[in-house]
Design a protein around this nucleic acid. Structure first.
Ligand SMILES: [Mn+2]
Ligand SMILES: [Mn+2]
Ligand SMILES: [Zn+2]
Ligand SMILES: [Zn+2]
Lengths: 138, 138
DNA sequence: CTATGTATTTGTAGTGATTACAATTTTATT
DNA sequence: AATAAAATTGTAATCACTACAAATACATAG
């Protein structure tokens, strides 16, 4: 008995999403890896377990999760979307050498500048780019 | 005699960029409009004046400007790059209704979290999404 | 001024991530 | 078991962007 799968199933049902095998597996990947993956990464990993898996299903499922507020899409590079299960506001650092994406805390709610009085803010994003310690020391 | 064209010419020469007609026009558009345009917007506007203009030239020129540090690319949506002549760190708000992108000041240098000690930060980005006042009141 | 070489521009073809859509398979209901 | 609805799959289409080679404009030497 897998506790994570149980939690995922409950979470999906709470959002009126039918907990299909594929959907559970995709959510499981997102939570366990917690690596801000691309569609490609998700597909390549899961297709070993689910040989019939279609990349379209991965896209569809992620878009469904986004719609229901379970997943947040990250736009850091313009040529590859990334996905995060952690919805709360935090910043992302992408290493330009190894490509890894690191989380970092940031008090985004602190800086709502006067300039944005009268604006309705739905979504806040902070991302940095550069080199991570591993890549600097090698 | 156009003062802006003179300034642009000097600016390009300073960066070892030959100030061709197309390059000057593209930079002129960026500075005058100051609207974080897409390639499409730049092309559609300038092709009226320069009927032979190629979209490839717009792409090439923008990439050259980025390389030389004259322009900063904005990745807000994953399906359309935007370009900004203002290099200094500031935030961007994109209205999800009208699509307009607003600047706002933000003290990005203030929040370099402890988590990023040992990281080499090359680039900082802050962008919000939501509704602008115009769109809220209509 | 003309010839030759270099840089810039242009048009077309290619790429790669994402979406559209119809067919197939799975799941739920009677 | 029969039927309907939902989910998954595969393929084709889309669209921003890039690669590349031909054409044009520019510079420099004779
Ligand atoms: Mn994250
Ligand atoms: Mn700006
Ligand atoms: Zn790295
Ligand atoms: Zn608006």
């Amino acid at each position: 008995m897998d506790g994570l799968v149980g939690k995922i199933t409950a979470e999906l049902l709470k959002k009126n999403i039918k907990p299909s095998y594929q959907r559970i597996k995709i959510m499981e990947y997102l939570i366990e890896k917690n690596n801000h993956p691309t569609v490609e990464m998700i597909y390549n990993h899961l297709v070993k377990e689910i040989p019939t898996l279609s990349k379209t299903t991965v896209y569809n499922t992620l878009n469904l999760f986004i719609e229901k507020g379970l997943v947040r899409p990250l736009t850091i590079e313009d040529n590859e979307a990334r996905y995060d299960t952690i919805i709360s506001n935090h910043g992302h650092f992408k290493c330009q050498s190894c490509g890894e994406i690191y989380d970092f805390p940031v008090e985004i709610d602190d800086f709502v500048p006067d300039k944005l009085q009268g604006f309705e803010i739905a979504d806040k994003n902070v991302y940095f780019k550069g080199l991570c310690p591993k890549c600097i020391s090698s």
